[in-house]
Design a protein around this nucleic acid. Structure first.
Length: 265
DNA sequence: ATGGTAGGTATCCTA
């Protein structure tokens, strides 16, 4: 069975019906994982996403901030959420797809501006959530589990995941301490970075461009913050991975673009 | 070194 999964930080699901429709029409994902929906569950535009063909929904939002959602054309089972760092942020939703494929949709904190846990509680929170998730995946490791972990992890781990490795070493999202925590999370369950298994690490690749650039396309100062990881049991199912760069040029764009994987499961 | 834009909300937070 073919399975196409797309992850996208939409930066407000209510503000971008046109961009969402375009993404769905062009990519035709079976499952679409959204982050930063920025809406309480009772105000989520359910009928809009149902009209786009997503009959099965797992919505985990809150007012104004964060929020994740799993939209699916295929049945979802065992939907639940995770709460990390004893904080009631809506950052992690889980569902199981047909065939026992466990899908985790994650939104890691951006972490503020200062990469110092003493001065910046948001950076401390970012690192703490990565540690807690790593411990949880390590403790429940089972290499027969078929897991897809997607989301805005807010870290660009490789040199070519940022426009300038050297200039971003002290910038939150690419500091060595964050990269080490992300790597620990990846290794906690033997996850494979699906996008870099398809696009060679020697190639620059970004999924986010700041709104603050005068001309994002000309400057091209992007970062690869959005990821798709596969557990060892699922890694051989990977067929393709793509980044929808053109979505950054849509009218009223999100600052992130969709990332898609094709699996033969 | 600095400030730049965007979204949601309520007069400022987060990204």
């Amino acid at each position: 069975m073919h399975l196409r999964i797309t992850t996208w930080n939409i930066n407000s699901v209510r503000l971008r019906p046109a961009a969402l429709a375009k993404v769905v029409r062009q990519l035709e994902p079976d499952v679409l994982c959204l982050q930063e929906t920025k809406v309480a569950d009772e105000a989520f535009p359910r009928s809009m996403v149902e009209d786009l063909g997503f009959e099965h929904l797992h919505i985990h939002g809150q007012k104004a901030y964060h929020g994740v959602a799993i939209l699916s054309r295929r049945p979802l089972e065992g939907c639940h959420t995770h709460r990390w760092c004893a904080i009631d942020d809506s950052r992690h939703a889980v569902c199981t797809l047909q065939g026992g494929i466990e899908l985790h949709n994650v939104y890691v904190p951006a972490g503020g501006d200062e990469p110092d846990i003493e001065k910046n509680p948001k950076f401390r929170h970012k690192l703490a959530m990565l540690d807690e998730m790593s411990d949880w995946f390590a403790a429940s490791r089972d290499d027969t589990r078929r897991i897809v972990l997607v989301g805005d992890l807010n870290i660009a781990p490789l040199e070519n995941d940022v426009w300038s490795h050297k200039q971003l070493l002290k910038v939150v999202s690419h500091t060595p301490v964050e990269v080490a925590k992300l790597e620990r999370l990846r290794q906690s369950h033997g996850f494979v970075d699906a996008v870099r298994a398809i696009v060679p690490p020697e190639e620059k690749l970004y999924t986010w461009w700041s709104y603050r650039a005068r001309d994002w396309r000309a400057a091209d100062r992007g970062r690869r913050l959005d990821h798709v990881w596969l557990s060892p049991a699922l890694a051989p199912a990977l067929r393709d991975a793509t980044v929808m760069r053109e979505a950054r040029g849509f009218d009223l764009p999100s600052d992130h673009v969709p990332v898609t994987v094709d699996l033969d499961v």
